[in-house]
Amino acid sequence: MSSTRQRVYGYLAEFKSASALYKAAEKVRDAGFKQWDCYSPYPIHGLDGAMGIKRSVLPWFVFCGGITGTATAFTLAYSTQVVIFPTVVQGKPANIFTIPAFFPIMFELTILFSGFTVLFGLLSLIRLPRLNHPLFASHQFHRATDDGFFIAIEARDGNFSTAGTRDLLEEIGGSNIELVAEED
């Protein structure tokens, strides 16, 4: 136990409500911090602006995924039905006029590929899954998924200082301020 080194993750402070968290976030943002986050049991609308976070880029990923799906379905249907193996069923044509009959599958694969892009795009953007995180070492952080509102400022941020950051968190109304450390 004594030989274990501790690596400081940062400060964790609790706020009493969503409103308090929102106002505190604006102040942390204005103090110039970059490596920090607000933790809440549900998404707080408007907090992105208060934290200075840009709009998510996920839609662009999904757009590309969707287009890939459309192209895949079209290529699959057209190449097999018209080019490789023209199947004449019920006298329906096997040429360029067949394309309208491919629309349902083109639509479905667009949605399918987009759906997978949402899942994997999201996971890569939020850097999950991961099995552990330094914040899980905190004795109060489990309340962030229940009824706690927290701000964590990370030690790797350039503006971080042991005394100054603590003072800032106290000043903006944080309580239960805790220095979170993980075993190195």
Partner: peptide, 9 residues
């Protein structure tokens, strides 16, 4: 973890 950087995405 429920951080807003996660909630946002």
């Amino acid at each position: 973890r429920g951080g807003n950087r996660q909630w946002s995405h």
